[in-house]
Write a protein that binds this DNA or RNA. Structure first.
Lengths: 205, 205
DNA sequence: ATTTTTCTGGCACAACTGTGCCAGAAAACG
DNA sequence: CGTTTTCTGGCACAGTTGTGCCAGAAAAAT
């Protein structure tokens, strides 16, 4: 029959091209032509795998969130199989640190994601994924804080719901500003702020 | 001589049109034609007051930050002329609350500003203003925390520098998420989180 | 009333966009 | 080898963009 290509992998490769282009020229630079060029394909080829420009962006968003959530999930399983208060604290910190752009790669990733989320406000097709990720983040953070409190690593008088919101906002805010002005928020400052915040939650003076 | 028009006011009116358009259709919708339509002008007229599309956006950004900083400044002077710990605490909270989108108007404003900042990452002309605002926010927050500590309203063992970074990130993160999902972060939750955060800074259990 | 200068509106052009369409290449099966 | 079907590349078209250019309106000063 025909030339056979792994369509799923192709789509992923094109998504990578989307990430590169958005990273370099923003979402408005992610035209079919630019993306095709970046992927080393012709526009017609890209359109063979994506019916629409919208579908391309939606898939790219979904792909990025999928990879990210996989990373977080691995931290979650590691956390649930960890014993001992100090160890659990360290793993939890690493898990939450996954939400921060602690190196150039993740900073670009965060920038691309911000572009998606910002665009989603006026592009209904992009809203579902943006919202899912935000809700997923809330869930994970709430779960981590909840289990920490049950394990005695967290002050008893804390309202886990409120603290989850606060921590999520802190992580997102740190990310936002680190993307905007990396020199004002270098990786070590990010981790300092996170660690210090967690210390206030665990009852240490 | 010629028909005389208050050029400064015209420019401000056009900037308002820019805000509306960005609020409704995002930054990529802020073309000269769309903005001119929104302002009830012809493209040629808009171009008479702005040499460039870039200059239009830069001016709009500057105008928005100017108005915002004016609001903050008024809170600052009110704070400096306030006596009594409880009163000072309330005024400080109101000041910091000015950074949050506590109503629909400020939520749209915040969304527009986010569009500017996001775009600034790949548009060098927009970076200066974005950075100034971020640094201005840092300055104000650091000043507020510093004076609170000197006045005894803040725990002595706190590192004001670190706490400023943390508080700035928290405010920005709350704003970001409130813009993205207003139903998850309604105004009363925003103020709850801020108040609770400030309580942890002032030594209350 | 004439002049002078700001201001207005719009035409035109090149560059870009997404998309419809299709001819031909490429490769696995008969 | 030939057939069939996926895949590729590209042309064409309508729509949008920023910008250059300019004719004429509008109004203040002479």
């Amino acid at each position: 029959m025909p030339k056979i290509v792994d369509a799923a992998e192709r789509r992923r490769a094109v998504a990578d091209a989307v990430f590169s282009v958005i990273g370099r020229r923003g979402l408005e630079g992610a035209s079919l032509r630019n993306v095709a060029d970046e992927a080393g394909l012709a526009v017609g080829s890209v359109r063979h795998y994506f019916s629409d420009h919208s579908e391309l962006l939606i898939f790219a968003m979904k792909e990025m969130s999928r990879r990210f959530e996989e990373r977080v999930r691995s931290h979650v399983t590691r956390l649930s199989s960890t014993q001992g208060e100090a160890e659990r604290r360290a793993v939890a910190e690493a898990l939450l640190g996954e939400f921060l752009p602690l190196d150039a790669t993740r900073r670009e990733e965060a920038a691309v994601w911000q572009a998606f989320v910002t665009a989603a406000r006026v592009r209904p097709e992009l809203q579902p994924r943006a919202r899912e990720v935000l809700e997923g983040m809330r869930d994970v953070v709430a779960r981590v804080l909840g289990s920490a409190q049950r394990a005695g690593g967290l002050r008893d008088d804390l309202d886990v719901g409120l603290e989850s919101v606060r921590l999520c906002a802190l992580l997102d805010g740190l990310t936002l500003q680190a993307v905007q002005a990396p020199d004002l928020l270098p990786p070590d400052v990010l981790t300092d702020v996170l660690r210090s915040h967690l210390r206030t939650l665990s009852g240490g003076a």
